[in-house]
Design a protein around this nucleic acid. Structure first.
Lengths: 115, 115
DNA sequence: TCTACATTTGAACAATTGTGCAAATGTCTT
DNA sequence: AAGACATTTGCACAATTGTTCAAATGTAGA
């Protein structure tokens, strides 16, 4: 950052208070990573598809029309960010949503969109 | 996409059902844009700062330590995605969260992180 | 062990993104 | 009208991202 604007005396309080209340950098990064995971059409489609029932990589490829490889790469991201969990079954790997929060957030996001 | 894996006979039902239930492309893009807006550290900091009270571009620059220009660019994105609203007051432009859904979603995301 | 197929992985590459800089715009005060 | 300062905007550039391809790995069955 180069440019710095003047701090109004009267804004100083707000600024210090806001800075204090801001979550620390690490928390910010965790939460933004979480939203970022949902902030991509392919990954969001995967998550929506998993709302109903668990599906394997191949199913998700067929559902979305994307290559198995592309799906697998995105599944890794969703897995790392604790949005999906998986279970191996023979040659297949079945993915499911990792917890109830995901469903809640999707529901609110849908409601938010309908305005 | 090049590689396509075989559809299991027994998975065909799941696949068709999932495809049917999937929101249409436009909705997917809208929702992923929404999450994407929150999925960046700078923008998320702005949103957290605005949880308490409305702030102007300059305040947000001071709070985050980023240039006024960088903040302004990110505010435009948050504005376009209906996450923040603004009001002009003389030389200043004050931003605030646009609706209650944002607060709800942040609350759930925080809870999701605490596990 | 060999074959078939599901999945993952790493490299490569185009596309997108986030930031700072400089210039433009807007608004208040003198 | 001129100066001061907040904000926005367009450009440039480095960094990140999403996809494909090719190769590697894993697993079941002949």
């Amino acid at each position: 950052m180069t440019e710095v604007c003047k701090i109004y005396e009267e804004h100083l309080d707000k600024i210090l208070k806001a800075q204090e209340k801001l979550p620390d950098e690490e928390t910010i990064l965790e939460i933004s990573d979480f939203f970022n995971a949902l902030g991509n059409p392919t990954r969001l489609k995967i998550v929506f598809a998993l709302l109903e029932e668990e599906l394997c990589t191949c199913d998700l490829s067929n559902i979305t029309g994307l290559s198995v490889s592309a799906i697998s790469h995105q599944l890794r991201i969703l897995k790392d960010r604790k949005i999906v969990a998986y279970k191996k079954d023979g040659k297949n790997v079945f993915y499911r949503l990792d917890d109830e929060h995901i469903r809640q957030i999707l529901k609110i996001a849908l409601r938010h969109m309908e305005e």
